[in-house]
Amino acid sequence: MGFDQYHEPPDELPAATRTFARLCASLTEEAEAIGWYEQRLAVESDAEAAAIMRDAQGEEFKHFSMDLEFLLRRTPLWREIAQGILFQGGDIVAHGEAAEESAVEGAADRGEPLAGSESLGIGGVRAVAS
């Protein structure tokens, strides 16, 4: 069994980081599968075979989305940046730049944990004035 998803010695990684890495690897595999089905569908002339592949690709969409949601739930900063980009109309790059700037500055203001920290990540919870 390979451990290619780890770039650091697995024994030195916290359990949560190992889980995170596994889901990142899974996300990559699902994205690859989606791309492969897309190519197969582009060249398949048999309608029945194409229907099966479309169904299989739908499964990969589901798996990719579940992996992504898991990773976003575990990474508040990633989630916040994604919220500024996903399901928005307009210029994707502009949304990306704005979401990153806003989220990174907001994270610092909220006292979010340092990278690699095992804290509960509570930080500052300043109430908003009414």
């Binding site: 909220r110 006292g111 920290s117 509960l120 990540g121 509570i122 930080g123 300043r126």
Partner: peptide, 22 residues
């Protein structure tokens, strides 16, 4: 722990929080 702490950490809701610095 998060669920129990967050409502009770009153000071953090009213003052400036710097860090965490590690």
């Amino acid at each position: 722990a998060r669920e129990r702490l967050t409502p009770a950490l009153a000071a953090r809701k009213l003052i400036d929080f710097a860090g965490p610095h590690g």
